[in-house]
Design a protein around this nucleic acid. Sequence first.
DNA 1: CCATTATATACGCCTTGACAGATATATCTT
DNA 2: AAGATATATCTGTCAAGGCGTATATAATGG
Lengths: 135, 135
Amino acid sequence: MRRSKKPFDLARMFAALADPTRLRLLNLMDGREICVCYFVEILKQSQPKISRHLAYLRNAGIVSARREGKWMHYRIERPEDTGGAAVLDAALRSFKGNRQMQADLAVLRKACCEPRGLVMLQGAPAPVPMATGVA
Amino acid sequence: MRRSKKPFDLARMFAALADPTRLRLLNLMDGREICVCYFVEILKQSQPKISRHLAYLRNAGIVSARREGKWMHYRIERPEDTGGAAVLDAALRSFKGNRQMQADLAVLRKACCEPRGLVMLQGAPAPVPMATGVA
DNA sequence: CCATTATATACGCCTTGACAGATATATCTT
DNA sequence: AAGATATATCTGTCAAGGCGTATATAATGG
């Protein structure tokens, strides 16, 4: 049976972006693959809450997950749809000028340099930079 | 009392964009000021529904309204926030590749050329092109 | 002033999704 | 197999917001 590719749902993507916690998660994932424990530690939010928002982003097709032992790594999955990808890129770029987002990235950098400082992150796999995909 | 400018709420803007009807409205407003009756006629949706969605966009600061006699004209209001404006622009551009959006614009063009054909639009003020603001 | 037209808002119903807190699942370690 | 750890899902509660229908408001024309 013909399974024609479902058309990209822009409104759905916007719904996925319509939450401050999810935006912060995407900001942290921008340009790297990163483990759930980092999100929990950096955003200082409950683990179930982080996990639910990640699930939402997964269902919306914006991020993908990869398991590595006990750890789950999340990364941004740029939509194939050109318009969708452009919107997502614009969103990610807009984070650059946002205080909160800058602060989150600062904490991430610090956590990566000295994970022993963050009890939660001892032994956790460090985030891995990725090609951005943005030409 | 200090009324410092409230910071632009990106998540809120995304929430405003997270509805197909509102996206269709924005598409029709892209580059022109246009009267409510056109929305009702082109989207073939109930007048209260259209009006509610326009109110939502107004509250989100994405559009502004201007009264002219019985008619209300709506236009897109680009956010002052650079990132917000960039996201909105990307969204508007993404409509270009969308069937539905293209079809809506085709109906609009037709309605403008021969408003007598649309009973609802007899005597209604025609949409007026605007500078896009996108440099 | 009354009717008509254009638009906005109110009401009631229903779904989605946010949250906290409890619990389930997967993996590793011993 | 029995913890321990990392993450996911379930449960119940609540607020936001979608819809249709009814009604309110604003402007215009007799």
